[in-house]
Amino acid sequence: MTLSLPSGELAPVGKSETAQKPSLVGLSRTDLAARLADLGVPERQTRMRARQLWSWLYVRGETDFLAMTDIATDLRGELEANFTLERPAIVTEQVSLDGTRKWLLRLSDGKEIETVYIPEEDRGTLCISSQIGCTLTCSFCHTGTQKLVRNLSAGEIVGQIMLARDRLGDWPGATPPDPRGLPDAARKISNVVLMGMGEPLYNFDNVRDACAVAADGAGLAIGKRRTTLSTSGVAPEIPRWGEEAGTMLAISLHAVRDDLRDTLVPINKKWPIKELLQACRNYPGLSNAKRITFEYVMLKGVNDSVADAKELVRLLAKIPAKINLIPFNPWPGAPYECSDWEQIEKFAEVVNRAGYASPVRSPRGRDIMAACGQLRSESIRQRRSVQLAPST
């Protein structure tokens, strides 16, 4: 059974007092110090006050300036008057039969994104978005049917993590309001993947800055080895991402021939497979301990032959890699079917024999359209019957 839980009444967009204030969520220590200086805090105090603010924001998850008891009362009042700590607002929460949770989130300008939490026995992975919509129109991906609206700010990216920690009770001393299916672990969110809506390398600076805030060990503490950026193949930015952010990397490959990948992942027309794989070989720090994950969606009769598997192995030679085989997750109007399980096993056997780890990703959250390739929001509210109509 799928539960849809409305989050309650929302303030009309543009009429909320806090919506007019800039947010401190997502700011670095340096930026927090700059905001304090703008309020007139003496230079000799800004580092200390920024450190206090940082701890309240990213260690304790505080949402009320007035509760920050080690900050002077008059400064708390100034912060309250000039800034906000709001996260994105939950419009709906859906809980899958397998425990996966999907949140439709409303941003301060009324636009909407989706964020997914995937619990496992001893860990939890948060799948976050980097854009509203997407420009890439990958033919197997539901998100690609929604036109790009805009990039997310660093604060809106970090805000997804903080909202999820609020909802999961993942702050020190907090209790989850809904504990169903949560892992038996001290940290409910142990990993973050940039695999939600959008192409993160097309929002490079904001995604990089958000990852830096999230990775700080004296804050959210989701380190580079526990953060994975997934790209459809923006080849020129891949080495730069490794230099400036250094997270784990995943490549949405999905085909071994340029003619097919041109259809499945149209960005391939700009940066074909050979150029993309060379960028991967140039990824800083690439090693057996820091392998690139290649994502490969299994489409019946399209890219799932044994010959495709052998060519995949040939293409990835000498790249420290893991290959994730992803059973296609259907969505209304999708032009593809998932490969038969027997065929997936034959494909995986070829890859495994070549020495690559090739787990078949278990579909999670299919019943609430939260699985890989199924995310899509509407920035303009529509009737549900319209939202579920087949694409044309």
Rank of each mutant, 00 (worst) to 15 (best):
L85R: 04
L85I: 04
L85A: 01
L85C: 02
L85H: 00
E86R: 15
E86P: 01
E86K: 13
E86V: 06
E86D: 15
E86F: 02
R87H: 15
R87I: 08
R87P: 06
R87Q: 14
R87S: 08
R87Y: 13
P88S: 02
P88V: 06
P88R: 03
P88Y: 02
P88D: 02
P88T: 06
P88C: 04
P88K: 05
P88M: 05
P88I: 08
A89T: 15
A89I: 13
A89V: 14
A89D: 11
I90S: 04
V91N: 04
V91E: 10
V91D: 04
V91T: 06
T92N: 12
T92S: 11
T92M: 11
T92D: 10
T92W: 10
E93P: 00
E93Y: 00
E93C: 01
E93Q: 10
Q94C: 06
Q94R: 14
Q94D: 13
Q94G: 02
Q94H: 12
V95A: 02
V95Q: 03
V95N: 01
V95I: 15
V95L: 10
V95H: 03
S96F: 02
S96L: 02
L97A: 14
L97H: 10
L97G: 11
L97I: 12
D98Y: 01
D98M: 02
G99L: 07
G99A: 08
G99P: 09
G99S: 07
T100Y: 07
T100P: 12
T100E: 12
R101F: 01
K102C: 08
K102M: 13
K102S: 08
W103A: 00
W103R: 01
W103H: 01
W103Y: 06
L104C: 04
L104Q: 06
L104A: 05
L105R: 03
L105N: 01
L105G: 00
L105I: 05
R106E: 15
R106C: 08
R106N: 09
R106I: 11
R106S: 12
L107C: 04
L107D: 02
L107M: 13
L107A: 03
S108Q: 15
S108G: 07
S108A: 15
S108L: 13
S108R: 15
S108N: 12
S108H: 14
S108E: 14
D109S: 07
D109M: 14
D109C: 10
D109K: 12
D109Q: 10
G110N: 09
G110D: 07
K111W: 07
K111M: 08
K111C: 06
E112D: 03
E112W: 01
E112C: 14
I113P: 09
I113F: 09
I113S: 05
I113W: 10
E114N: 10
T115R: 09
T115K: 13
T115M: 14
T115N: 11
T115E: 08
V116I: 12
Y117E: 00
Y117H: 01
Y117N: 00
I118H: 06
I118E: 07
P119T: 10
P119S: 06
P119L: 05
P119V: 07
P119F: 03
P119K: 11
